[in-house]
Amino acid sequence: MEEQTTEPLIQLTVNRVVEDSNTDTRIVVLTRTDGASEHFMIWVGASEGEAIRRALDTSTTPRPMSHDLIKSFGEHLGIKMERAVLTDVKSSTYYAIVYLENKGVVRTIDSRPSDAIALALRCQAPIYVTQDVWRRRSGQNLDAWLSKLETKNIGAQEV
C-alpha cells in the first residue's frame, strides 16, 4: 500500500458534504488548494459523511464521536497525524493511507478515505491525492448534477 509514484502529491481541501437523498449516501466534495477548479468527489456512507460534516462545521457534540476519540488517543499518547493520502482507486473504491508520527517514528495505516478525512480535519492534517488517483477520479462532469442535487436538498438540510 505504499505510494507507487514519485510525482508530487496534490493537496486537497474539503469543500462540502452533499446529501444524496436518493441513496442515503453523502458526497464529499474536495477542491485543490492550488486553485485549479476541478473537484474531487468521494461517495461515503451517511454516518461517515456526517462525521466529516461535523468536523467542517466545527460543531461539538455532547459526547466524543468516534473520530474525536481517535484524536483524543493521539493527544494522550503524543501521536501526531501528519497527513492523509488518497493512494489508489479500484472498482470505484478509493484507498487512503494515514501517516502518523510519534517521537520521530512515522507509521502508516491503511484507511478508508472517510476515516482519513474525518480524522485529518480534526487534527488539522493536510489531505493529498496522488496524481494517478487524481487523473482516475470519477465525477469530473458531475458539477451540474451536483448543483441540482444541492438545490433539491436545501429544504431537507434545514431540518
Binding site: E48, A51, S66, H67, L69, I70, F73, G74, L77, I79, T93, V98, L100, N102, V105, R107, T108, I109, D110, S111, R112, D115
Partner: peptide, 18 residues
C-alpha cells in the same frame, strides 16, 4: 473488505503498540 472506523482505531493504536 475495508477497515471500518473501529478497525481503523485499532490500527491507529497498533501502529505504536498502544
Amino acid at each position: 473488505p475495508r477497515p471500518m472506523t473501529h478497525d481503523f482505531m485499532k490500527s491507529y493504536l497498533d501502529a505504536f503498540n498502544a
